[in-house]
Design a binder for these strands. Structure first.
Length: 428
RNA sequence: GUGGAAGUAGCUCAGCUGGUUAGAGCAUCAGAUUGUGGUUCUGAGGGUCGAGGGUUCGAAUCCCUUCUUCCACCCCA
């Protein structure tokens, strides 16, 4: 009885694993370039942790379980609650700003579709304890730095930026109450995703007043920051903050990637300031990356009111985009890398192959050999298929203490003494 | 949760309106080749046709159920 893989999961055979490693290693390298430290947590947490800031619908999309002690647990669907929990536990001893990154494996019980599976990897970058918009700029810079390193240019992708804080101020100026904001955010988040008529119907339901709705639509139709004129001091401050963010991104040399877009709201309730999403300019895919400032989250998780900002980038959409752009060539990604492949010409050297291969490995080099043996031609064929840089050949000259080292790519080979060869392994 | 399309060898697919023992290419393994690899040639293994049930003398083919995949919704932390 063959058992199939579970719905929405992937098996990573060596070629797929090479792709995954290519992506994950790129994420990690970019994180380290910007001075982030890596952390991780458990793959399951208390179910209640995800109920703090999420509605029933979110909880339905969790993989949950009850352990033998009756604890209600859930496999992590996102990393931020774990981050908040971990940071809160050591908030008084960790030097700030806390710049952390992680590449957790996450699970969500959603219906799989293009760019979305039930199990995936997500790069998380967060900065805790820095209120200044410079921290937001750094997170965005790091994400763009990674995307640039894959070969994506400002012609391929765009960071759509806005500010919840600014939007809240403008909505209040238009007459919205604090209680109405969440509902209005929910509708505005749909603006680019549903037909215009459906959007207006939804907005009409959330905002019955024609006058107020007109003002909101005027705000939403703004194409640039200059068209907006906040009248309250809160609005002007939020505006200044956003302008400073754009100036910082220019200073960092990635200004051409950034674009103001009042329509970026993000569905999530916990964002309090700058929010952004990264899209491919072709716009055929869902967002590659999303993030923003969440100044209340640590407090909501029982800690002190420490500000934070962060972003998440999933592997599924990214992989599709890289493939579409021809930036992911599977055949160029090796599943292994060998420095040496030891072969013999003559059965009497078969056990010497094992001894020599072990010595090469103990000296710190990647080395393999054939179990099957066979004639020299067959063994070299295997050496070739293994992708080894060099073949080491044991034959008649070995009786005189010599062996042949062959460069597989060029075919050049030279005879060296066993001692010289072993000595050469110690260099580097 | 809703709707559409599809499941035949490890992969890509043939298999006409039901009819002998279900095929091909690639891949794998073995041999041609006992001191020199990417070529070529020969051969082999591998499928209860996604699973279960039904119709029929007879089902990969028709019907039902279910699972999985892909796509579009809902949602998207």
């Amino acid at each position: 009885m063959k058992i199939p893989a579970v719905k929405g999961t992937r098996d990573f055979y060596p070629p797929q694993m090479a792709v995954r490693n290519f992506i994950v290693e790129g994420w990690k390298a970019a994180s380290r370039r910007s001075g982030f430290e890596e952390y991780d947590g458990p793959i399951f947490e208390y179910l209640s942790m995800y109920q703090i800031k999420s509605g029933e619908e979110i909880v339905e999309q969790l993989f949950s379980l009850t352990d033998r002690g009756g604890r209600q647990l859930a496999i992590r669907p996102e990393m931020t609650p774990t981050l908040a929990r971990m940071v809160n536990q050591q908030i008084h001893t960790l030097p700030r700003p806390i710049k952390w990154f992680s590449v957790p494996r996450l699970c969500r019980a959603e219906r799989p579709q293009k760019g979305r599976l039930r199990e995936f990897f997500q790069w998380n970058l967060d900065i805790v304890g820095a209120e200044d918009v410079l921290a937001d700029a750094e997170v965005i810079f790091c994400a763009v730095d990674y995307l640039r390193s894959t070969g994506l240019t400002a012609q391929d992708i765009v960071v759509r930026l806005s500010s919840r804080r600014l939007l809240a101020a403008l909505l209040k100026e238009a007459g919205a109450s604090e209680e109405q904001l969440a509902a209005i955010y929910g509708v505005l988040d749909k603006k680019a995703k549903v037909p215009a008529e459906a959007f207006e119907a939804m907005l009409q339901e959330a905002v019955p007043s024609d006058q107020m709705r007109g003002r909101i639509l005027q705000v939403m139709n703004s194409r640039s920051l200059d068209e907006l004129e906040p009248k309250t001091s809160e609005g002007r401050e939020a505006m200044e903050e956003l302008r400073r963010l754009f100036a910082l991104l220019d200073l960092m040399g990635i200004g051409e990637y950034a674009q103001f877009d009042i329509g970026v709201v993000r569905g999530l309730a916990y964002y309090t300031g700058v929010v952004y999403e990264i899209y491919d300019r072709g716009a055929s895919l869902r967002a590659i990356c999303g993030g923003g400032r969440y100044d209340n989250l640590l407090r909501d998780f029982g800690g002190p009111a420490v500000s934070a900002t962060g972003m998440g980038m999933g592997d599924c959409v990214l992989e599709i985009l890289l493939r579409e752009k021809g930036l992911l060539k599977d055949e160029n990604l090796p599943t292994r890398r060998l420095d040496y492949y030891v072969v013999f010409a003559g059965e009497q050297w078969a056990s010497e192959v094992v001894r020599l291969a072990a010595q090469i490995r103990l000296a710190g080099w990647a080395c393999d050999f054939s179990y099957k043996g066979g004639n020299l031609g067959k063994q070299l064929k295997q050496a070739d298929q293994s992708g080894a840089e060099r073949a080491v050949l044991l034959g008649q000259e070995y009786t005189a203490g010599k062996l042949v080292v062959k460069e597989m790519k060029s075919g050049r080979q030279e005879e060296v003494s066993r001692e010289d060869f072993l000595a050469s392994l110690k260099r580097v």
